[in-house]
Design a binder for these strands. Structure first.
Lengths: 236, 236
DNA sequence: CTTTGTGAAATTATTCACAGCA
DNA sequence: TGCTGTGAATAATTTCACAAAG
């Protein structure tokens, strides 16, 4: 009962770039980033090909899971061989929208804002930090690395002139929603939110929350449960 | 055909504290933290009771979802009234293992480590940061707030003497696994990992990962897809 | 052989809808 | 009336298992 001849219609099924306009499972998207990172590391060590089994083992997933995830976006594996690292990296980069560089700004020059500014990974992940803002006049004007903290008043004009599309919210919870509003108003379309507060942005932007408290609480829960194993934290 | 008499066995079903030894859905655990935060905010404004509908609206979830989540741990709602904030807060705190305070340490006094040290939320979330370590001799001995950076060599003895149970990994990816090993070796049972690298800890500890790169990539993906809106939480 | 891609089955999570209680 | 708790229905996600292909 598996497959009858008629099923395999000789009409070569569109093999190239079936742009997958169906639903993309949320968990798949999260894992794509992990695949990309692992592939890059392997490529650096000269590995030119990688199987779903290897990828899965490195990341703690089953091989079937890896294949299903990748198959969502088309077929780019090579039976008997695996996936060619360079090829797959490029493919995932494209899927994740990383073939494009976005300008980003940080709002809030407190502990988190300051820590993020020199974080080299941003650049590699396709985001150029071009400005940092703060509300506090005593902080405005001070330097952090080669950046100078700007007043919040400059936000609208700078977002427009520098075409900033991403806003990183590193302000206290109470100021988070207002900050989001200002950023969106100015033209930002994506927010990375470090404030422990749900942002209401309607359909005007995308939000990804990074929530330390939730992570901490997950950890406390797992420990008190005697659970052992690992989980991630970070969700849109 | 809903319920026949026989179903409602007069044997009062254990209503108090059914310790829920069945499986607890992963997503439920993540949302518990969000409920707790929201409840605390409401309690501060003097609200003494809250319905599943209100909680759901505040967090972008359905009322049924909220009730199902809470019901997993027993029955502590009041029909016609809702949940009493104080009561529910205490209950969730207990479930999340937050009726216990844990000592924690940070390894890595770079950008992230420094930013986390003064992060007040740790304390409130049940973690006392009692030490920060670094490998670099030029950093060891310097002060950050009221903490003095300690050499990595002191880790084993300090973890034991201060009964540190949580290790926060804020070192570069290359050093993450070794740091995890040292911490576990010393007696730590929970790790909060900020390094972009999967840690292999076997069954010896719990790990929660906070991964900026994954967050960033999710954002890039959502934007390039033209998706708008936020789903909330914090995830595995 | 090995490894992909994928239907079908199994598992997990969410939503529906309603009985019962205050 | 308003709201909980929960079975039953649905939907989403993962795993299985195998045909096709290098």
């Amino acid at each position: 009962m598996p497959s009858r001849d008629a099923d395999w219609d000789p009409t070569e099924r569109a093999k190239r770039d079936p742009p997958q306009r169906g639903k993309i499972p949320e968990p798949t998207i999260r894992r794509l980033s992990l695949y990309l990172r692992e592939l890059r590391e392997r490529e650096e060590t000269g590995q030119t090909t990688m199987s779903s089994k290897q990828l899965g083992e490195a990341l703690g997933l089953t091989d079937a899971q890896v294949r299903k995830d990748l198959a969502v976006f088309g077929q780019f594996g090579h039976p008997g061989v695996g996936y060619r690292t360079g090829e797959l990296i490029e493919r995932i980069r494209k899927i994740l929208g990383k073939d494009h560089q976005w300008n980003a700004c940080i709002v809030g020059a407190g502990n988190i804002g300051r820590a993020l500014l020199p974080y080299g990974r941003f650049r590699r992940d396709g985001f150029d930090l071009v400005a940092i803002f703060d509300r506090d006049p005593t902080v405005v004007g001070t330097s952090i690395g080669d950046h100078r903290v700007r007043p919040l008043e400059d936000l609208p004009s700078l977002v427009k002139s520098r075409e900033i599309k991403i806003g990183i919210i590193a302000v206290p919870a109470e100021a988070a929603q207002e900050t989001a509003n200002r950023l969106i108003e100015a033209g930002v379309i994506g927010l990375l939110n470090f404030a422990p507060r749900r942002l209401d942005v309607g359909q005007r932007a995308s939000v990804v929350n990074v929530d330390f408290s939730v992570a901490l609480e997950q950890l406390a829960f797992q420990i008190s449960l005697g659970h052992r194993g690992s989980t991630n934290a970070t969700k849109s």
